[in-house]
């Protein structure tokens, strides 16, 4: 399978000298297009820092990151415009849906293509197509406050997918859901990853969904351990 995202020897250190905190000590990770992998780890292990580096929100200290064939980071950001990079290459799904409360469902989804410069009509058509694929098109005119939790999460998945990003970062997307709905969301992510040829990284603590991942990255003390179907495959200890 073609590569979606790859990071090599990613380091993130906060501060310097005696007070330096080494949040990431050399993380390696690779996710193929159409693949969904889990990222697990205890609190303070560096999950959030890794997510923020992957999301181009904070700058790593060193290492290399590529999305597809494009080098995003190689000891410095290669893209001049990180806002456009996030908009075009990375989709985000949050623990809570965080839909924009003053936009209706279709415009919550269409906002991203509109921000990318697409005409409103085209952006709304793309949004509607996605909402249909996610079975929430019938709520297109509703406001976020009128949706159920499950519907809100589907809309947030649509928003993450609408610009067809090669990578989606999902931060605890099933945390507020019961087992049935959580597994449904994972099924949906798997289906969307294949349908849209997107690499999806799911950061989770949720024991209910961990067994569903074919591959897992377990992060501890700033390094990742890759597991496949629960079998220790490789260790990137530094």
């Amino acid at each position: 399978m073609a590569e979606g995202i790859r990071i090599e020897n990613l380091v993130k250190t906060y501060g310097s000298g005696d007070t330096a905190v080494h949040a990431l000590r050399g993380v390696d990770m690779s996710v193929a297009k159409g693949e969904v992998v889990g990222l697990i780890g205890p609190s303070g292990s560096g999950k959030s820092t890794l997510l923020k580096c992957l999301g181009a929100v904070i700058e790593p200290t060193s290492g290399r990151m590529t999305i597809g064939d494009r080098v995003i980071y190689d000891d410095r950001w290669k893209a001049g415009d990180l806002t456009a990079l996030r908009r075009d290459l990375i989709g985000f799904i949050f623990q809570a849906p965080y839909l924009i409360p003053f936009l209706d469902v279709i415009d919550n989804v269409a906002l991203l293509p509109m921000l990318a410069g697409k005409p409103n009509a085209q952006a709304r058509k793309e949004a509607r197509d996605l909402l249909e694929a996610l079975d929430v098109a019938h709520r297109a005119a509703a406001m976020p406050s009128q949706l159920s939790g499950g519907e809100q999460q589907r809309v947030s998945i649509a928003r993450a997918l609408v610009n067809r990003p090669p990578v989606i970062l999902a931060d605890e997307p099933t945390a507020p859901l019961d087992s049935v709905r959580a597994l449904a969301v994972v099924d949906l992510l798997n289906s969307m990853a294949k349908q849209f040829d997107t690499a999806i990284i799911v950061v989770t603590h949720d024991e209910k969904i961990i067994p569903t991942f074919r591959r897992l990255y377990n992060i501890r003390d700033g390094v990742t351990i890759e597991e496949e179907r629960g079998v220790l495959k490789a260790q990137a200890a530094k």
């Binding site: 999301g55 806002t83 908009r87 985000f92 965080y98 409360p101 906002l111 921000l115």
Partner: peptide, 13 residues
């Protein structure tokens, strides 16, 4: 929170 989300998903300043 909405502004943070907007910025994260690619809304310009």
């Amino acid at each position: 929170r909405e502004i943070a989300v907007l910025k994260l998903i690619g809304t310009r300043n």
